[in-house]
């Protein structure tokens, strides 16, 4: 335990609640509800000190409205800018959607524990996303892309409700023709334009081969999805501690103090948001 003397002796460090101004440098409309924002921290020192891992998040701050935790979608290998894929689903995200290119917002972070990128190197990777769950996985996918030679087989399974809700479709349409990524898209409700798969993302497991001794899994999607995707991975004999999941929980501070994001005996913000399945199994109420 710390002591009164300990507190007195410690210098007050920079205020961790203080958001740093960041300029919106590009906005891409991905779907009716989601936009991709590219942001650049204005202060050069802050920008250079901002190093993150795929799977980590930032607190996006719009003064007068509030803050929201948003996972980073760009890869750590992309320097100087970060990308956030944001659904218009609340006060802060709604206010962000109303912003124009050139406007300034605030950022704090990066926070939390990301995917074990270094540990995944030398192995096959199976990434499974549902809906907006592609947002944090996109960072990992892009990072793997930029260091593709370090990895074995890379398989991406991505399920959406309908073709209009497929995120990053422009990029994934191009990737369909690549040999170095096995990408399978599926939708629950196809339309006439859809040439991909139909049905839940779990159905795609019939089409893939997994080397259970050599594969890392990464899953992100709506809460109901985890159990079923994990079941499929377990049927392929993947190890519980090589299956990684990323959780979404309510957060205010992002730094382990406000208490909102408690999951089991842990906090999503500092202990997660990425957990392996063994850890997640030990978090009561997590999955």
């Amino acid at each position: 335990m710390s002591t009164t003397q300990g507190v007195a002796a410690r210098d007050i460090q920079a205020n961790p609640y203080h958001p740093w101004p960041a300029r919106i440098t590009s906005i891409t409309n991905l779907t009716d509800k989601e936009k991709l924002f590219e942001l650049r921290l204005i202060d050069e020192d802050v920008r250079e000190a901002f190093e993150f891992q795929s799977g980590q998040f930032v607190e996006l701050s719009i003064f007068g409205v509030g803050e929201a935790p948003i996972s980073i979608s760009s890869a750590p290998s992309k320097q100087g800018f970060i990308e956030l894929c944001v659904r218009d689903s609340g006060d802060v995200t709604g206010a962000l959607h109303a912003k124009q290119c050139g406007d300034v917002v605030g950022l704090r972070g990066p926070y939390g524990r990301g995917f074990p990128f270094e540990e995944m190197k030398g192995h096959d990777v199976l990434l499974v996303a549902g809906g907006l769950g592609i947002a944090p996985l996109k960072s990992l996918i892009n990072h793997i892309h930029d260091e593709r030679h370090e990895f074995g087989k890379v398989t991406i399974l991505y399920g959406s409700r309908n073709p209009a809700e497929v995120l990053f479709r422009y990029q994934f349409d191009m990737w369909k023709h690549r040999d170095d990524f096995d990408l399978i898209l599926t939708v629950d409700q196809p339309d006439d334009t859809w040439d991909g798969e139909t049905g839940l993302v779990t159905k795609l497991f019939d089409q893939i081969d997994v080397d259970p001794d050599n594969t890392y899994g990464a899953i992100c999607g709506p809460p109901v999805m985890y159990k079923y995707v994990i079941d499929e991975m377990r049927k392929k004999d993947m190890d519980v501690d090589r299956i990684y999941v990323s959780f979404e929980r309510r957060m205010k501070c992002g730094i382990g103090k406000c208490g909102h994001c408690g999951v089991g005996h842990q906090y999503t913000c500092v202990d997660g948001p990425v957990f392996n399945y063994w850890e997640a199994m030990n978090l009561q109420g997590a999955i």
């Binding site: 335990m1 710390s2 300990g6 507190v7 410690r10 007050i12 460090q13 205020n15 961790p16 730094i255 382990g256 103090k257 500092v270």
Partner: peptide, 11 residues
């Protein structure tokens, strides 16, 4: 104190 100190001290 344990909560408000640590990696992100609460000023």
């Amino acid at each position: 104190d344990n909560v408000f100190t640590g990696k992100y001290p609460d000023p």
